[in-house]
Design a protein around this nucleic acid. Structure first.
Length: 421
RNA sequence: CGGGGUGUGGCGCAGUUGGCUAGCGCGCACGGCUGGGGGCCGUGAGGUCGCCGGUUCAAGUCCGGCCAUCCCGACCA
């Protein structure tokens, strides 16, 4: 911790109202550049990378392939789908090249990816196919708010799928739904994250689907059916939709939620506009069926903060925690320091990420920071504990510390990992 | 984009009807005492009072414009 350039602080900036940003700034995870624009410091970046690793793992399991597309985008492509005009899409950041050519900064990559894959999709043998990326999206929001939940620049995982038929598309779409549930389970939000019917929007089928996490800081209103574990976004909550889905209104209750993911079907409309065709078995040229699947990585981090934090600060699920153990020394006794360094090495050698609080600070400050930083397990090394021969541990999710035998530590860590808290 | 609020050392704040070298706490540096839930004492560094212009003998304070930021609303593909 003496080498960590970020430091904790006791207060948050007075103009930061959102809990997620208050805590992340106090703990030194993020830095605000301007309204709706945040930098991710070493601790914050580790959380982002942990979330990305989980998402990446699940996307790869779908045989989707990772790539990275550019932020600068061509005007012509968006004009084809009539989405360049500011009257149709009002969140564009635009600029121009030295020669006057207009360019846009990507707020989505649907058009770009569609245009790109035309080169590689020729035959039904090339389908189904899917690609994804983690990328900074730029959206000129009229009003950024809620800390890192709604920003002008944000990290998003966006995936795109291409299929030869509605059936093939549906199969992939359903597998993505499963994968998304796994992602939200793995980051600790599974219990309160609902598969949600939402309005389709331009170019899409009747419904799109969202993944909504029940959390007070959210911006959406959903109606949830806890038994069936599904939800309807308020925007589609009406009798026609209920009839169509064969659902009963009385099973639903209203709740505030945050959208952590969404998935769209485009059918063949976008392919027809962009000219993405393949040749089927009969030699007939047909438009591909396209889908789009997003997870807001930075927003997900913010939702996790909002969901788990308490009056003492952050509280990360093990799976996304920047460090799994915080090793806290008390006093400057040589035996204490030696013991701490031995433990640091032992745990690190086992692949467990340890944040070593080697500061010459008083216990109270160290404990307060350990809580604020939200590391799942705290281990305290002190003269007192060395004499007793026991290990003092405290889980972030629990109030009091406990004493265990030294050889039980590994088991405790395994348990926390398994329960993800 | 409509409405409202706020800008004073890195952070949180005070500064009265305009008036004297712009204060306080945290943090920071140095010295000392401490040592299990943000401890204490002393010394010190650090400020174009958001920016530009105006009124005045005199502006952090009054007026105008601008900028930034937050909240409510609208929007959210």
């Amino acid at each position: 911790m003496t080498k960590l350039f970020s430091k904790t602080r006791k207060t948050h900036p007075s103009d930061e109202v959102a809990l997620n940003a208050q805590l992340l700034i106090k703990a030194g995870y993020i830095h605000k550049e301007m309204a709706g624009v945040y930098s991710y410091l070493p601790l914050g970046l580790k959380v982002i990378e942990n979330i990305k690793d989980i998402v990446r793992d699940e996307m790869n399991a779908l045989d989707s392939q990772e790539l990275t597309m550019t932020t600068l985008q061509e005007k012509e492509l968006w004009e084809k789908t009539d989405r360049w005009d500011d009257n149709n899409v009002d969140i564009w950041f635009k600029s121009e090249l030295k020669n006057g050519t207009e360019v846009g900064f990507g707020w989505s990559h649907e058009e770009q990816v569609g245009n790109m894959v035309k080169e590689y999709i020729n035959s039904y043998r090339d389908l189904p196919m899917s690609v994804y990326q983690f990328q900074n999206k730029l959206r000129n929001e009229t009003r950024a708010k809620s800390g890192i939940l709604r920003t002008r620049e944000f990290i998003m995982k966006d995936m795109y799928s291409f299929a030869e038929s509605e059936e093939q598309h549906k199969e992939f779409y359903d597998r993505v739904t499963e994968s998304y549930h796994k992602v939200f389970d793995r980051v600790g939000l599974g219990k309160d994250t609902y598969f949600t019917f939402a309005s389709g929007g331009a170019f899409t089928d009747k419904f799109s689907h969202e993944f909504q996490t029940l959390v007070g800081a959210g911006e959406d209103i959903v109606y949830i059916d806890k038994k069936q574990k599904i939800a309807l976004n308020k925007e589609v909550m009406n009798d026609d939709v209920l009839d169509l889905l064969k659902l009963k209104k009385e099973n639903f209750e209203e709740s505030v939620s945050a959208e952590v993911g969404n998935i769209f079907s485009f059918g063949s409309s976008k392919s027809e506009t962009l000219g993405i065709y393949f040749t089927d078995k009969e030699g007939v040229s047909r438009p591909v069926i396209m889908g789009s699947y997003g997870i807001g990585i930075a927003r997900l981090m913010g939702v996790i903060v909002e969901y788990f934090s308490d009056e003492n600060g952050l509280n990360w699920p093990y799976s996304v925690a920047p460090y799994k153990v915080i090793l806290t020394t008390i006093g400057n006794d040589p035996d204490v320091l030696k013991e701490a360094e031995t433990m640091y090495k032992n745990l690190t050698d086992k692949g467990i990420e340890v944040l070593y609080d080697d500061r010459d600070a008083r216990p109270g400050e160290k404990f307060a920071d350990a809580d604020l930083l939200g590391i799942p397990l705290r281990v305290v090394i002190s003269e007192k504990n060395i004499k007793s021969g026991e290990l003092e541990i405290k889980r972030r999710s629990e109030k009091n510390s406990q004493y265990i035998k030294k050889d039980e530590l590994q088991k405790v860590i395994e348990t926390i990992k398994k329960n993800n808290t």
